[in-house]
C-alpha cells in the first residue's frame, strides 16, 4: 500500500540531531549521525538488526546518553535537561516499544490511565474515562478495556501500546519496530494505524524498522542506516534506486525471502 501524502512543514524541526555518536565498549554503534525530522512527517529509519536504530530513539527520549553530538527535541537539548525538565519533555513524546511494554500486572484500562493519572492529577474520573474510550476507539479495541495484557494477541498489544502513548496527546511519536513479530495482515493494520495517528493527531514520527513493507507504507521519508551511518535519504524509490550493493542486498533479502 502506498503512503498517503501528509502535510509536512519543512521549516520546523521537532527533532534535530547533529554529529551523534554512541559506542558500547569497543562497538561503535552510531557514528556521526545527522538527522532532522520535519513537522508532521513520518520518518523511517531503516537498517538491519543490531545497527543501532533503537539506540537512536532511546537517545532521543533520554533513556540513553550519547557519547558525542547534540540531540535537540522540541527546542531543548535532551542531555542538558534536569530530571524534572526531561520528565516534562517526555510527556510530549510517545514511545511505542518493540514488545509493547504493557504493564503485566495491570488491566488494559489501568495501563491506559497510568500516564494520565500520574501526570495530570487534576483530571477528573469522567475525563479519564472519556480519554480512554477515545483512544481505545481510535485503535479499534474498545472491547479490550478490562482484559489483561496476557489475554491479548501480539497485534492487539501493539495497538494498546500505541493507545497508551496517544492518551497524553504527544507531538512526537517514536515507533520501535512496530511490525516485528506480527503476521502480514496484522502488519498492514499496524501500518494503517501509524498513518491514522499521523493524520488524526498531527504527530511527527520516527519509525524504526527493518521491514520494507512497513517503510513503504508509512514513511514520507526514509533514511538508510548502514554501519552506524546514514548512507541514503529520500523517498522509498530514491533510496532503493541505487548501485550500492549493501542497499540492494537489503532490498532483495526483504522482498525475496
Amino acid at each position: 500500500m502506498e503512503k498517503p501524502i501528509a502535510p509536512v512543514d519543512m521549516s520546523e524541526h521537532p527533532i534535530s540531531i547533529k554529529g551523534l555518536r554512541k559506542s558500547f565498549g569497543d562497538l561503535h554503534v552510531l557514528r556521526d549521525i545527522d538527522l532532522e525530522l520535519y513537522k508532521g512527517e513520518n520518518l523511517v529509519v531503516l537498517g538491519r538488526s543490531g545497527t543501532g536504530k533503537s539506540v537512536l530513539i532511546k537517545i532521543v527520549s533520554g533513556l540513553l546518553k550519547q557519547d558525542a553530538g547534540t540531540v535537540n527535541v522540541l527546542g531543548q537539548e535532551v542531555d542538558k535537561l534536569t530530571t524534572k525538565e526531561l520528565q516534562q519533555l517526555r510527556l510530549k513524546i510517545g514511545f511505542s516499544f518493540q514488545n509493547s511494554a504493557l504493564y503485566d500486572s495491570m488491566t488494559v484500562k489501568e495501563n491506559l490511565e497510568f500516564p494520565l493519572v500520574r501526570n495530570a492529577p487534576h483530571v477528573t474520573r469522567k475525563e479519564i474515562d472519556h480519554a480512554i474510550e477515545e483512544v481505545l476507539e481510535g485503535v479499534g479495541l474498545s472491547q479490550a478495556l478490562n482484559q489483561m495484557p496476557s489475554e491479548l494477541s501480539g497485534g492487539q498489544r501493539k495497538r494498546i501500546g500505541i493507545a497508551r502513548t496517544l492518551i497524553m496527546r504527544p507531538e512526537i511519536m517514536l515507533y520501535d519496530e512496530p511490525t516485528a513479530g506480527l503476521d502480514p495482515i496484522t502488519c498492514i493494520d499496524i501500518n494503517n494505524l501509524i498513518n491514522e495517528v499521523q493524520e488524526r493527531y498531527n504527530t511527527s514520527s520516527i519509525i524504526i524498522t527493518h521491514d520494507l513493507t512497513c517503510a513503504k507504507s508509512t514513511g514520507d521519508r526514509i533514511m538508510m542506516l548502514l554501519d552506524g551511518r546514514f548512507e541514503k535519504t529520500g523517498t522509498f524509490e530514491e533510496v532503493f534506486n541505487t548501485e550500492d550493493e549493501r542497499i540492494q542486498t537489503f532490498y532483495n533479502y526483504n522482498f525475496t525471502s
Binding site: T83, L91, F95, P115, R164
Partner: peptide, 21 residues
Amino acid sequence: AELGSMKVTEQIDAMEVSGTN
C-alpha cells in the same frame, strides 16, 4: 523476578518515558 521481567520487557523504560520515576 517481577522487576527483572519488567526490565527485560522494557516496562521500566516505558514507565520512565511516560513521565514516572
